[in-house]
C-alpha cells in the first residue's frame, strides 16, 4: 500500500483505515490537499474527523493505507519526526503551557534547540525575539507577551496555540475546531487570520460552525462513519441531498 506513486499534492491520503477492536473509525479514506489550499473537514459527531488528524500527526497508528506529505510517507514516523517534516497540529481544547508567559510559550515552540543539549545552550538571540514579536503581532497578542498564558481569554488561548504552530512555519497546518468557544468578533478575526496564514502552505481545518466554514473553506470534505460522504466546493456540498440528510438537515 505504501508504495503508491508520487503526486503533486502537498498531502495525499490513500486507502487509509484504522480500526479499534474491529470498529473502523476511518474506513478506506482518500483525501488530497494542494499547496495554498484551505481544506475543511466537517461531519457529525463520531464521523472520524479528529481521528484523521490523529493519524496524520502520528498520535494514532493506522491499520492500513498511506499518508504522504510532500511525497514522504508519514505512517512510519514518530510524532516529533512528523512535526520536523513540517506538519503542525492544534488540538481541540487549547493546548498551551498555562504556567509560562505568552513569550515563553512561543519561545518553547521556536524550532531551534530541539535536542537535549541544544535546548540547554539555546540562546535567546535578537533573531528569536524578533520572530516571536512578528508572530505575536500576527495572532493579535503582542501586548500580552508578558502575560501568563493561563490568564488569557479562551479565544486568545486558541490564537496563542495557532501562533505556536506558525512560529515553526509548517507546510501543513492542522486545526481542530479553532473557533470553538470564541465570541462573534473573535471568529471574524480568526477567519481573517486563517485566510492570511493559508498562503504558501496547506491548511486542514475541522469545524462545526457552517457560517465560519463558508467564510474560510476553499474545499470541503464531509465525513460520515469514517467514510467520505461528499467533497468539493462549499456551495455544492451544502446542496448535496446525502449531506443534508445526515448532517445539515437537523
Amino acid at each position: 500500500m505504501s508504495s503508491m506513486t508520487n503526486t503533486d499534492f502537498s498531502l495525499s491520503i490513500e486507502d487509509l483505515t484504522v480500526s479499534f477492536d474491529g470498529f473502523k473509525a476511518v474506513d478506506s479514506l482518500n483525501l488530497y490537499i494542494d499547496k495554498n489550499e484551505l481544506h475543511v473537514v466537517i461531519g457529525p459527531n463520531g464521523a472520524g474527523k479528529t481521528t484523521v488528524l490523529d493519524l496524520i500527526c502520528g498520535k494514532t497508528k493506522s491499520t492500513s493505507g498511506s499518508i504522504k506529505f510532500l511525497n514522504q510517507e508519514l505512517t512510519t514516523l514518530s510524532e516529533h519526526e512528523i512535526v520536523r517534516r513540517g506538519v503542525g497540529r492544534k488540538f481541540q481544547t487549547p493546548s498551551i503551557y498555562e504556567n509560562l508567559s505568552v513569550f515563553e510559550n512561543l519561545e518553547v515552540s521556536y524550532p531551534e534547540g530541539r535536542g537535549v543539549f541544544g535546548s540547554l545552550f539555546f540562546k535567546r538571540s535578537t533573531k528569536v525575539i524578533d520572530e516571536i514579536h512578528r508572530i505575536a503581532q500576527e495572532i493579535m497578542l503582542e501586548s500580552e507577551l508578558e502575560t501568563e498564558a493561563g490568564l488569557l481569554s479562551h479565544g486568545q488561548k486558541q490564537w496563542l496555540e495557532i501562533g505556536m504552530l506558525l512560529i515553526q512555519d509548517p507546510q501543513l497546518l492542522m486545526l481542530d475546531e479553532p473557533v470553538a468557544g470564541m465570541s462573534v468578533k473573535e471568529r471574524e478575526q480568526t477567519a481573517v487570520l486563517l485566510n492570511k496564514i493559508s498562503k504558501g502552505r496547506s491548511v486542514l481545518v475541522i469545524e462545526h460552525d457552517m457560517e465560519f466554514v463558508a467564510r474560510i473553506a476553499h474545499k470541503v470534505t464531509v465525513l460520515h462513519q469514517g467514510k467520505i460522504l461528499a467533497a468539493g466546493k462549499m456551495e455544492d456540498v451544502q446542496k448535496d441531498p446525502k449531506v443534508i440528510e445526515v448532517y445539515l438537515g437537523h
Binding site: C57, K59, E79, H80, V83, R84, G88, R89, F91, S95, I96, Y97, V108, S109, P111, R114, E161, M164, Q168
Partner: peptide
C-alpha cells in the same frame, strides 16, 4: 502532548 507535537 503539546511538547511532543512541537517536534520534541
Amino acid at each position: 502532548d503539546r511538547v511532543r507535537f512541537s517536534g520534541y
